[in-house]
Design a protein around this nucleic acid. Structure first.
Lengths: 246, 246
DNA sequence: TTATCGTATTGACATGGATCAAAGCGACAG
DNA sequence: CTGTCGCTTTGATCCATGTCAATACGATAA
């Protein structure tokens, strides 16, 4: 039974406008004509603002829409009955949330804002309708889902075969790369999540995350200060990843 | 058990026919009208037969089509440069392979037949075209992709938080459930994969898989004899899964 | 300023699963 | 039938990471 989102939804009246949005190439609007973009604009109903720690949706909620992150930072996680948590992803501007709900009409994970954030609400029925009419939109959407599957493959590889140091190196390089492709510094960034959340994502305990960060610092790969990370030797991290581990 | 034919054909001239296929509810054709089914039939170009150990596609291959498993059994895996392998899934009749390639036009994993198998070839450009015209087909396809994302979530949870016994219990129950929904016995089945492949899928070494199977047998949960598995106490396995581990 | 609370770091120790090694088993070719 | 080969089982040992515990840090509120 889908339960109601516990937090009052804050819908802001501002119309989203994919045509104005700086996240083209990451989102669904790439390669659309002016006229098609306008139609996509009219589909994307509204934006929704979330404060830090607010849920965008929870496991069990009825599925109605996808969400495109406009600003901010999210995590998605799954909970086991006994309380164990697995963080399944961290999402930043331009990334799409909610696709887990399509198959069953019900969300299967929780999506939580890790900082004050804003998303575009994309009613799914309308997206399907419009993507029957706009081939490029249809294809973009399929690509987004497929890339998510490929991302998952990478994470399985990480969880299934990598040692702690490799996991953290992969994590840092991935964050760096994603910040870069959004125009931020590749070398210096703020982690929005706790050590525990990183650990959960990587299949490690928070103490291990902390220890490996310290070791990386001793070895000159990075400078850590709480959530602030500076990458001093990206190639060093990359070497760590590619070398035969055992 | 399917036996090996001496003929190494890969493409058979027989037209597939979704309308005749017994895998409706698992595949893409659920809820389609007679007329729509006929159109789907004409889309599904041909079947392709694979012998045990043959690749359906490999990482790096150009992406052109999806494949629906008609008979047989597959694994998908990803390889790291240093030779480490992560099995990302096992696929049986009615399941769709190849969606990893949509995002980049290139396959990102290998798909290998674990026994002599047959697939329906679904040229992807045609599938997109037809699903612009048939709403139910479009929606079915989206559901299939979404369910794959949810499956991945479950696997991440397994790889990130579960102990060896829980992983094996989850694996056995999952296999049992999938055999059941295809009309086979829930309690007795043949594993088509080696201990090493199971281990790779579950993030364990083959020795650990073997040991846990032996332990399960000692405790009366299952009877193992090589690849033949009999589940004697499914509830016992389920209890193992649900109990707080530590 | 000081108290508090969530988060992070670090140390000491425990352990589950990996590693290494040796048989055992079954299918198949000759 | 016999030998070979791939796969599986089992034992002994090791080690990476988990667990438990103490302390430190930084933001915020009083």
């Amino acid at each position: 039974m889908p339960n109601k989102s516990a937090v009052p939804i804050s819908l802001v009246g501002i119309k989203a406008a994919c045509s104005q949005c700086s996240l083209h190439e990451l989102c669904l609007s790439e390669g659309l004509s002016k006229e098609e973009l306008a139609r996509l604009d009219s589909l994307v109903g509204a934006r929704r603002k979330l404060k830090r720690q607010q849920s965008l949706y929870r496991a069990g909620d009825a599925f109605e829409a996808l969400y495109a992150v406009r600003t901010g930072f999210f995590k998605t996680d799954v909970l086991l009955e006994d309380g164990r948590e697995q963080v399944t992803g961290f999402q930043m501007a331009g990334e799409i949330l909610g696709m887990d709900g399509i198959g069953t009409e019900v969300h299967t994970c929780n999506a939580v804002a890790l900082e004050d954030s804003e998303v575009c609400v994309i009613p799914f029925a309308l997206l399907e309708q419009l993507s029957r009419e706009i081939q490029a939109l249809q294809h973009n959407f399929h690509k987004v889902m497929s890339r998510e599957l490929v991302r998952d493959q990478g994470l399985m590889m990480l969880l299934g075969t990598m040692r702690a140091e490799e996991r953290l190196a992969a994590f840092l390089l991935n964050m760096s790369q994603r910040f870069t492709s959004r125009g931020y510094s590749a070398a210096e960034f703020h982690l929005r999540m706790t050590r525990e959340e990183i650990g959960s994502y990587l299949g490690l305990k928070l103490e291990t995350v902390s220890r490996v960060f310290s070791r990386f610092q001793e070895e000159g790969f990075i400078a850590v200060q709480q959530k602030h990370i500076r990458i001093l030797d990206g190639d060093g991290l990359r070497r760590l990843l590619n070398q035969r581990s055992r």
